[in-house]
Amino acid sequence: MLFYLSLFIFLGALFISLQWFIGGRKLLVLDTYSTDISKHSPPFISVIVAAKNEEQNIYKSVHSLLDQHYPHFEVIVVNDRSSDHTLSFLMELKEKHKNRHKLQIVSISSLPDGWLGKNHALYQGTKHAKGDWLIFTDGDVLFSKETLNKAINCIVSNQLDHLTIIPENIGGTIAYKAFHSYWSILGVWNFIQLKHAGVGAFNMINATVYHEIGTHKALALSPDDDLKLGKRIVKLGFRQKLGFGKNMIRIQWYESIPQVISGLEKNLFAFMRYNTFLVILFSILLFLFHVFPFIGIFSNDLLTRSLFSATILLYIVMYVINIRFVNDKPWLVLSMPFNGILFIYCLCRSAYKTLKRGRVKWRDTEYSLKELRRYMKNN
């Protein structure tokens, strides 16, 4: 029985790793593109930032945007009901930065029914945008000065309607970095098998296409608005590419494992479409594929042990290849079973907390689970 299970796990891991490797070869690395935009007329870009209580990060983030070497752009920051010093830092930038004329500050004091806060904030930002291209981002993302130049060259070279970039992780404890490495491989595979992508830190979309897909109105109650944005773009036949922002776009998502557990509470059950059966199914599969091989290698049967060892070898190869995209270490593969268990815990915790409350809490605002489920069903 254990032999057949080891064979199933190995064949499944082989399929997934091949899918990840083949799909990964098609992904872009933003830093490989030129900064020279003299060969074509650079279009106007509107960068739209949703910010709620981002006093720790907003100054550095917006400062890095205003420092762009790209000639034609504006930065629209939507201060979404912040109760901290977010607005004060924005006003300081508006007063002192050499490119302050490029900064618009839009303040929102209320959230209409039928909207998630971030989705509504980004939509309000688009109402003030003059750009041929829109970039949706968050208030804690840091940008290299050449990011917009390289992004435009990437768009032109690949004839894209939508470019979405996975940012480079910075900082955090060793345990968090190990989880991020695991999460990055799992996340990229998810994008590859879905055949569409969207990353909230950097979604760059042609303004005309954005309106053709229905704007954020079509995503009003989607907690995974970035992914749903990408899905609608592909569904309507527009051209999309996913890439990595190593050295160009950086973020510290979390600092420690407790922050990871808390931060994923909102999203994970949503990724399962608020379906308890899917939570149970994926938890079982994650345990079998990412945890059990590290137990199975101690089997007394040579063939069974060999299959589990081959499965782990596949994972080691994936971690080594992943260095091309992220600044992580391949030895972090040793933490894979622990991170698999952690991810299962986060997934189950997200489902349990949401079901118990009957609501999802995000940025001090609560949303009815019944309403979110109904929205998911209809979209």
Results as ranks from 00 to 15, higher is better:
3 F>S: 05
3 F>E: 03
3 F>D: 03
4 Y>L: 12
8 F>I: 15
13 A>I: 07
14 L>W: 12
14 L>A: 15
17 S>T: 15
18 L>W: 14
19 Q>R: 15
30 L>H: 14
36 D>V: 07
37 I>R: 07
45 I>E: 03
45 I>Q: 02
49 V>L: 13
54 E>V: 01
56 Q>T: 10
66 L>Q: 02
67 D>R: 07
70 Y>R: 10
76 I>K: 11
81 R>D: 04
90 L>W: 00
91 M>N: 04
94 K>N: 04
97 H>V: 01
103 L>M: 04
113 D>Y: 05
118 K>T: 11
121 A>Y: 08
136 F>D: 04
142 L>K: 02
158 N>W: 10
159 Q>I: 11
162 H>T: 08
167 P>H: 10
187 G>W: 12
192 I>E: 09
198 G>Q: 04
199 V>P: 03
200 G>C: 08
205 I>D: 04
208 T>F: 11
209 V>P: 08
222 S>P: 01
223 P>Y: 09
224 D>H: 10
227 L>A: 05
234 V>E: 02
239 R>S: 07
246 K>A: 13
249 I>F: 03
251 I>K: 00
255 E>I: 00
260 V>E: 01
261 I>K: 04
267 N>Y: 12
270 A>E: 11
300 N>V: 08
304 T>I: 10
305 R>G: 11
324 R>Y: 10
338 F>D: 01
341 I>G: 10
344 I>C: 10
346 C>N: 02
349 R>F: 06
352 Y>F: 13
353 K>C: 01
355 L>G: 03
371 E>P: 05
373 R>H: 00
